[in-house]
Structure formats: C-alpha cells, structure tokens
Simulated assay, not measured.
Amino acid sequence: MVAEQLFLIVSLRRVGSEIHQADQYSEETMTTNGNERIHRFDSAADETPTEAVIRGHASLRDKRPIDLSPLADAIPCNALNALVNTGDKVTVTFTYEGTQTTVHGDGEIVIQEPA
C-alpha cells in the first residue's frame, strides 16, 4: 500500500499541474442517463491508466490531484496499470470518490456519478 501511494505521488509530481487540466489532453463528454451523469475522458499517450483516472477525477471536481483521496485505497495502482496495459479489450471497473469508474484498454476513462 505504501509503495503504491509513493508511486502515485511520484507520478503526480512528474505530471504536475497539467494533470488537473483535462482539456490539455482530451475532450470530456458528459451525458445524462436517468439519474446518472456519465463523463468520458481519453487518456493521453504518455500517461498511465492511474494518472488518467486521477486527471479525470481532478478535472471533474475542479480539484488538485493531491486533494483527492488516495486511488490506492480503491484499487492497487500497479495492478490497474498492468491489467489495462494488456490490451484494448480489457475493462476494469471500481468505485472511487463515490463514483463508478471504468478504465478501458483503449484509453477511455468513464466516470459515472449519481445525479
């Protein structure tokens, strides 16, 4: 757990404030499905799935990444990166920051939050 949190902090420092600005990497689209709001982001070619999830959540909440709860409390970061990087057809879904977060192997991040 400590190693994953350290990895996350190092990753955030490497990416810096840019991780907070989703529009620097990709467009966000939002749709409403019943009582849910669904946000879709594309990860950048030079970021890990973990970094993309944090960037998406930080942008969605207009927060700095360091102000979010540790992603490692929701899912092992190294496992997320390893699983998602195995292929385009991989999908990993978990709960983070009160949302259902799905990471697709093709780089799409989907964050579903209750309306």
Rank of each mutant, 00 (worst) to 15 (best):
L60Y: 01
V2N: 06
I75H: 02
L6S: 07
E47F: 02
G105P: 06
N85C: 07
R61K: 15
Y96W: 03
T48R: 05
Q24W: 03
A82E: 08
N33Q: 14
P76M: 08
L60H: 09
R64Y: 13
A3N: 14
V10M: 11
E47R: 14
T50G: 10
F41P: 12
G34Q: 15
E18T: 04
V90W: 01
I38V: 15
R14K: 03
I54N: 00
G105I: 06
G107K: 10
R14P: 01
N85H: 10
R55F: 06
N85E: 15
Q24A: 02
F41D: 10
F7I: 11
D23M: 09
V10R: 08
I75C: 05
E27I: 08
K63Y: 05
E113P: 10
A82H: 10
K89Y: 05
A45M: 05
D67C: 04
Q100N: 14
S17K: 07
T31D: 11
L83V: 11
Q21S: 15
R13E: 14
D62S: 08
F41T: 08
P76L: 10
L68C: 00
D88Y: 04
A22L: 11
R64S: 11
F41K: 03
I54K: 00
C77L: 10
G98R: 12
S11N: 14
I54A: 01
A79I: 06
Y96K: 11
T50R: 00
S11C: 09
A22S: 11
M1S: 15
R64L: 04
Y25N: 09
E28L: 10
P49I: 00
H57N: 10
I54E: 00
V92H: 03
Q112S: 15
S26H: 02
N33G: 04
T29E: 10
L80E: 02
L68I: 02
F94Y: 01
R14C: 04
P65S: 03
L8T: 09
V15K: 09
A82V: 06
E108S: 11
P70S: 05
V84G: 02
H39V: 00
N33F: 08
V10F: 07
Y25S: 06
G56C: 05
S69F: 05
D42Q: 09
M1Y: 11
N35P: 04
R14F: 01
H57M: 09
N81V: 00
I19T: 03
D106S: 15
S43H: 04
I111A: 07
Q5L: 13
D106Y: 10
F41Q: 13
V110P: 01
Y96E: 07
G34F: 14
R13T: 01
Y96M: 06
I19M: 14
I19E: 09
G87I: 13
R37L: 07
I38S: 04
A58S: 14
G16H: 03
T86E: 12
V15H: 01
T32H: 02
H20C: 01
N33E: 15
Y96R: 01
G107M: 04
R64G: 06
E113C: 09
V2R: 14
D67K: 13
G98T: 14
V110D: 03
T99K: 13
D46P: 02
I111M: 15
N85I: 04
T32C: 08
R14G: 02
I66W: 06
R13P: 00
A72N: 07
V10K: 12
F7Y: 14
L6K: 13
D42F: 07
Y25R: 15
D46A: 13
K63W: 05
V103Y: 03
V92P: 00
D42S: 12
E18K: 14
